[in-house]
């Protein structure tokens, strides 16, 4: 068996250097066909490898029960915890840190499209849909996910909304940690790290002030649960600091959001309200 693996590796190596030769010579067609051949050889290698060295399915027993839920439900959980539209990366981070979940970024890429397809096939058949946040142009915002049951005002994004939603995220994460029975320092390190990362970018939220990377982090003993590299912020302080900045932006943001939501109600039909309008049609309507 290993012989055939060796042969395959030999062939893979030969193919690779031929591809690089072809790429350098700008022989695009040749490079493409060689690449196809290479992918074939690599697949064969992977299969041979699997047969050769049966990898035990280690992941399964360790996975937390939460991950047995479908991806969309895990995402829903995370979004519900946050209560604001969020990017895939934040959803993965929050779910990983607070729910010990194991979502991976790539699982989220086709989610919105699948939801839209499902909605268009049979509208409102599901209790909720994972939908888009809407931009000022009423188009689907790049990369942000929201929940269909939220009021439009929450799902539209004005100029201050990214900041407002970021501060809200920090508050929600901190409050979640406060609800845990244990002191913050006993919280899962992932959660501490997430909170520390959020707190760094909120004035007055990080234990020793922002802008002084890690200054003073050394003061605390390296007791169990302390995450080195980050000063562990006090969740109550984070909540207070984030609320303080939030108060500055809240009114202006609410006004902007109400205006956009109003426009969305006037101009968009149901599917567009959830998944965004096409910009060109809007441009025409604007004109």
């Amino acid at each position: 068996m290993s012989e055939s693996l060796d042969d395959l590796e030999e062939r893979i190596n030969t193919l690779r250097s031929e591809i690089r030769r072809a790429v350098r010579a700008r022989e695009g067609a040749l490079a493409r066909s060689l690449r196809a051949e290479l992918r074939g050889a690599e697949r064969a290698w992977d299969q041979a490898l699997a047969a050769h060295e049966p990898t035990p399915d280690e992941a399964a027993p360790d996975e937390p029960p939460g991950s047995l839920l479908p991806v969309r439900e895990q995402v829903h959980q995370a979004l519900t915890l946050l209560g604001v539209p969020a990017a895939g990366k934040m959803i993965v981070a929050v779910h990983g840190a607070l729910r010990a979940g194991s979502l991976r970024g790539p699982q989220l890429t086709s989610l919105r499209r699948d939801e839209e397809r499902s909605f268009r096939t049979s509208p409102f058949a599901r209790p909720y849909y994972l939908c888009a946040a809407l931009t000022d142009r009423l188009s689907a915002s790049r990369g942000l996910l929201a929940v269909s049951t939220w009021p439009l005002e929450k799902r539209v994004i004005g100029p201050l909304s990214p900041r407002v939603d970021f501060l809200t995220t920090a508050i929600r994460v901190a409050e979640h940690l406060l609800r845990l029975d244990e002191p913050a320092e006993q919280a899962p390190p992932g959660a501490q790290r997430l909170l520390a990362r959020l707190a760094q970018n909120i004035p007055g939220a990080a234990p020793y002030g922002t802008g002084t990377p890690g200054a003073g982090a050394a003061v605390r003993g390296a007791g169990p649960g302390v995450v080195p590299g980050f000063a562990v912020p006090d969740p109550a302080v984070v909540v207070k600091a984030a609320r303080a900045e939030l108060a500055v932006h809240a009114d202006a943001d609410a006004t902007a959001r109400a205006e956009i939501a109003g426009r969305a109600r006037d101009r968009l039909r149901d599917p567009e309200r959830l998944f965004g309008g096409a910009m060109l049609t809007l441009a025409r309507r604007e004109a």
């Binding site: 990377p213 890690g214 982090a217 050394a218 003993g221 390296a222 590299g229 980050f230």
Partner: peptide, 10 residues
Amino acid sequence: PAVEEPDEEE
């Protein structure tokens, strides 16, 4: 010598 030099951790 700091107990931790956090910006070095990564």
